[in-house]
Design a protein around this nucleic acid. Structure first.
Length: 199
DNA sequence: AGCCAGGCTACCG
DNA sequence: CGGTAGCATGGC
């Protein structure tokens, strides 16, 4: 299986996806400067948590609610009372769990200096699993780590352990975070469309 | 009217 | 270890 060839063909089919989408600017194809600020970085991180097993459309509603109450930063999240936080993120589902996950992450985030946390540091946070950790590393920190999700397994008929699949992609592709970002986004786009067609 | 979304944790055998 | 119930809302 030539993964680089799959990447090229998906790119031709769907065009650049421009992940990660932000509230103000939406998608930003051909712009790899994002995140430019610490604020954008944090929004990417909590978006990655909120989108766990959840359609992005619903995550956008939750993010917009948080923005409305000026809680798109770590300090503000920690200062919100429980009911307000849960109510804001309710559209993204699992609001009891995700409220706790956001607080756990915000606590961690506030403790950071300028350094980039390691994968295992992210994984040690309650509520951050492998895909979420890798999404944060790839899209918020621009680290060349491939993100594996349900669509990746489905599209390529892979039934191996998460990290095995991740390493398979990383070995087959140039070590370039921009390619990893686009490829994962393209896989999701392809997965969404092929599902819409077959139903 | 179901089925399922850009998963994770806890618990089971 | 691998497998899976539970978590929750909204879109199609």
């Amino acid at each position: 299986m030539d993964l680089l060839e799959s990447y090229r063909s998906l790119l031709k089919k769907h065009g650049k996806q421009g992940w990660w989408p932000l509230l103000e600017t939406g998608y930003h194809p051909n712009n790899y400067a994002i995140p430019r600020t610490d604020a954008e970085r944090f929004v990417i991180c909590i978006g990655a948590i909120l989108t766990q097993n959840t359609a992005w459309k619903n995550v956008e509603k939750a993010l917009a609610n948080l923005q409305k109450i000026k809680a798109l930063n770590a300090k503000a999240v920690l200062l919100l009372d429980d009911a307000t936080l849960k109510n804001a993120i309710k559209p993204a589902g699992y609001f009891n769990q995700k409220a706790k996950k956001l607080r756990e992450f915000a606590k961690f985030y506030l403790g950071l200096e300028d350094k980039i946390p390691s994968r295992s540091e992210f994984l040690s946070i309650w509520g951050i699993g492998r895909e979420t950790a890798d999404s944060i590393l790839l899209y918020a920190y621009k680290q060349p780590i491939f993100v594996v999700d349900a669509y990746t397994r489905r599209l390529f008929s892979l039934d191996a352990d998460y990290d095995e699949i991740r390493l398979l992609f990383e070995a087959a592709l140039p070590r370039d975070y921009r390619i990893y970002q686009e490829f994962h986004a393209l896989i999701v786009e392809e997965g969404k469309r092929s599902r819409a067609k077959t139903k």
